Simulated scan of single mutants.
Amino acid sequence: MTSQTTSGSCCSSDGSCGSGTKADVQGAGVTTVYKVPGMTCGHCEGAISQEISALDGVTAVKAVAASGEVSVTSSAPLDEGAVRAAVDEAGYELVGTA
């Protein structure tokens, strides 16, 4: 019997696994995952996503209330202070990278 990678795995279909680093290069961008506790609903996710999306170079934002994580993809590494200020503007606190 052979095992197969499931869609929920950290490994890709070709058998390679992620590096486990906080910021990974994803195609033409850099993705960083931040910890932002206190989100409880879709409105929270939207407020944080909207503020971070306004930062120069940001190409995608995905906030997940259940995990308290915000994944940010940008064309180049972002200044954490700028991300922290955007999260603060939304009414939440960035506590660091995930």
Rank of each mutant, 00 (worst) to 15 (best):
A98T: 01
A65N: 14
A60T: 14
A54H: 05
E45L: 03
D14R: 06
S49Y: 02
S12H: 11
M1D: 08
E80I: 08
I48S: 00
G91A: 07
S53F: 08
S74N: 06
Y92M: 07
A76K: 10
V83G: 12
S12Y: 10
D88F: 04
G20V: 01
S16K: 14
L55E: 06
V95K: 13
T2P: 13
I48D: 00
K22I: 07
A47W: 01
D24F: 05
A85R: 08
T40A: 12
S12P: 01
V25E: 13
D14P: 00
G42I: 00
K35P: 00
A63Y: 03
Y92H: 06
T21M: 11
G18R: 13
A98D: 08
P77F: 04
V72I: 13
G27H: 09
G91Y: 09
Q50R: 10
T97Y: 03
E80T: 01
V30Y: 14
K62H: 07
A23S: 13
A86R: 02
K35Y: 07
A63M: 03
P77H: 01
A47E: 15
S19Y: 07
M39N: 05
V33P: 01
Q50A: 12
E89P: 04
D79C: 02
G81T: 09
M39A: 04
R84Q: 15
V58Y: 13
E89T: 13
R84F: 02
A85N: 09
A82Y: 03
S53Y: 07
I48L: 09
A90M: 07
V95I: 14
A76E: 12
P77Q: 08
A54C: 04
A65G: 04
G38S: 04
V83N: 11
T32C: 10
M39F: 06
V58R: 04
T5R: 03
G8P: 02
V72A: 06
T40G: 03
V58S: 11
G38P: 10
Q4C: 06
E80N: 10
V36G: 04
T5V: 14
S7A: 14
Y92Q: 05
Q4H: 11
G81M: 02
M1C: 08
G81W: 04
E89D: 15
G46Q: 06
D14M: 02
T32E: 13
E45A: 11
G68N: 05
V72E: 09
P37R: 10
T40K: 08
S71N: 13
A60K: 15
S71C: 07
C10V: 10
C44V: 08
C44Q: 14
E80G: 02
C41K: 13
E69R: 05
A60F: 12
G91I: 01
I48E: 00
T6I: 01
I52A: 02
T97G: 03
I52H: 07
